[in-house]
Design a protein around this nucleic acid. Structure first.
Lengths: 365, 365
DNA sequence: TTGAAAGCGCTAACAG
DNA sequence: CTGTTAGCGCTTTCAA
């Protein structure tokens, strides 16, 4: 009933040990689930610890042990839902095994040296999950040099030699294209992201391949350059809409660009999906909030976050990571922004959405 | 030229001291800018430390000293731009005084006790910035009970007795209303958030007051219930649009709801701002990305984050915080979603936007 | 101005 | 099964 810790600071292991009438070591062993303690002693120690509200001091343990049961996530940016979803998965997985997750944000402006930053993180975290920003080669260099367990969450391109979790952009984009083709579209526009190797390039390649595979011409006019932003998507879509023969469907490189496209299509007095079908990529939470809700390719972001933590923990615990690069599958999420084209168009054999689960739920959230 | 730390772990203070030919204490004093070291000795120690790439171990310092120069931010959610902006400001301010900022995310599901969590944070952070989630009274209780410096970033309601940074919702909403009135609107709809005391209620009150002050009737039909979400804003706006005499302007309780309203308006075949003016609240980054870009009330989110850190640092350094609650001003950001109503309407004396800076830039970003 | 000793809270390594 | 000793890297306190 009485508050355990009144005025004399946090309860330490010494307090617990004393109250339990055992040595600190025994108390430590008991509380950490180590062997070498009688069941009875262990029970008693745990009881006292609980009663006193004891909590191990992570700074002390890290200093003594090298372990804090904390993993750090290095995030380039905290203002987008994409990264938010990644963090949800990572946090969940960490908590499940009694680890804590802390997020450290990268800021561009007068940044301390990457190397310096990594050493700081190493001082209190047992391992690091790095969410890569676009094109940061020196940053990646620092990761290579760092002497702590690291897993890279790579939603853009490729990082060799470091354990990496990514999703299959080529496959995802292929699925999107097949979905549109099966609905009967043959004149499909593509809204690109920045022109650099990586996810965007993979998706564009898939767009071209699938078109070619179906004997359709790849019309350069139908590829409109954006930059992953809503405004970029808006402008790119507008260019597509002003074409003499405009597409009946648009595939946006990511959901945010698709939002811009949606704006542009509506502004042109057209309707989605009646006049134009629209499909995005990522399935961030907002994708289900637009009107009409966006059909999109889901990257398993939550799963990726979880997977990163599990791979990291394996590394921390000295288990050899079998595969240095885990590529997770994408999934078609059919909502209401895609439909057959107005004037029919040729229809492919199986008109159902391949492997589609028309649910708006998050990936095993 | 040669790498300073090759195989034998991080450089410690002992290494530096030895190389400099002084005691650890002298090295410590020199590096921490304490008095009691000759200028010459200090210079030498600093030189060696730099050369060796020494970096103080925060875990050790925290253990010894109680200080880590780390501040923790407790965030309810990392998937919204609102909180992202807050964090940008906080991170910037912390870095400026050589502190680091770490973010800890609150998850709803099977949460450890709040008390427990705060004690964890206290073990490595010197102070805490708590971004309040909606209606979490037990959480606030834990904050009261915590024995560490705390500042509350309260974007919703009121928390007495804890130093708090907030912005002025009533004032902001008043400015928004006056902007619409000055443009000539008199039939103005309001999209609410959840029905609870706090920010949303303040904004609604302002809506009603300003209307009354201008001799305009507050028509309950024009107040449409949403929930801060895009979908909620969509539905609420749709109800407004189906009114026999629909409003010429809509004031959404936040930007996200305004995005939904924009969807609804366009879907109804109407144009913003030609047929209907639309104004939001918050000025999250996406507000400038819609088409048309959203006129909105800017909460100084970055500034709020900065202010929270500074208040916290004052507390950490034992300086008495003068005011327990800092309320920061809001600002009208005129973009392209507001205009005079189509059929004129009565125009108020000064038709210019009050205190408006029609810039899309972030607040002193 | 400098240094030596002690200790922050914990655990590894070695006794008993 | 349990306890003792030593030490993680740093800073405080006290002495020179």
């Amino acid at each position: 009933m009485d508050k355990p810790r009144s005025s004399d600071g946090p309860v330490t292991l010494a307090h617990v040990a004393e109250r339990a009438g055992v040595s600190q070591m025994t108390a430590s062993r008991a509380l950490n689930g180590r062997t070498g303690v009688s069941a009875k002693t262990r029970r008693e120690v745990v009881r006292i610890a609980t009663q006193l509200g004891y909590r191990v001091n992570v700074a002390a343990r890290k200093l003594s042990n090298g372990r804090s049961r904390i993993i750090a996530v290095l995030a380039p940016d905290l203002t987008n839902q994409f990264i938010g979803q990644l963090l949800i998965g990572a946090g969940e997985a960490a908590r499940k095994v009694d680890y804590e997750m802390l997020v450290y944000t990268l800021f561009d402006e007068n940044r301390r040296s990457h190397d310096d930053m990594l050493r700081l993180l190493q001082q209190f975290a047992d391992g690091l999950i790095a969410i890569l920003p676009r094109g940061a080669t020196d940053y990646v260099q620092a990761l290579y040099a760092a002497s702590m367990p690291i897993v890279v969450l790579d939603h853009r391109g490729e990082v060799a030699a470091l354990p990496t979790i990514a999703s299959n952009h080529y496959e995802g984009a292929s699925i999107a294209m097949r979905h549109l083709l099966e609905l009967g579209h043959s004149r499909i526009g593509f809204l690109t992201g920045p022109d650099e190797p990586g996810a965007c390039a993979d998706r564009l390649t898939a767009y071209q391949h699938v078109l070619a595979q179906h004997g359709l011409r790849v019309d350069p006019q139908l590829i409109s350059a954006g930059d992953y932003t809503q405004r970029g998507g808006f402008e790119a879509a507008r260019r597509l809409l002003s074409l003499r023969k405009r597409p009946t469907a648009i595939f946006a490189v990511n959901d945010v660009a698709a939002f811009g496209a949606l704006d542009a299509i509506k502004d042109a007095g057209l309707s989605v999906p009646h006049d134009i079908s629209l499909i995005g990529f990522d399935d961030i939470p907002m994708a289900s909030q637009t009107h009409p809700p966006l059909t999109t390719i889901r990257q398993p972001l939550v799963w990726m976050g979880r997977s990163a933590v599990n791979t990291l923990l394996a590394q921390i615990n000295g288990i050899d990571v079998a595969s240095p690069r885990v590529t997770l599958p994408t999934e078609l999420v059919v909502r209401a922004s895609t439909a057959p084209p107005q004037n029919g168009g040729r229809v492919l054999p199986s008109a159902g959405a391949r492997g589609a689960k028309p649910s708006a739920q998050g990936c095993e959230l």
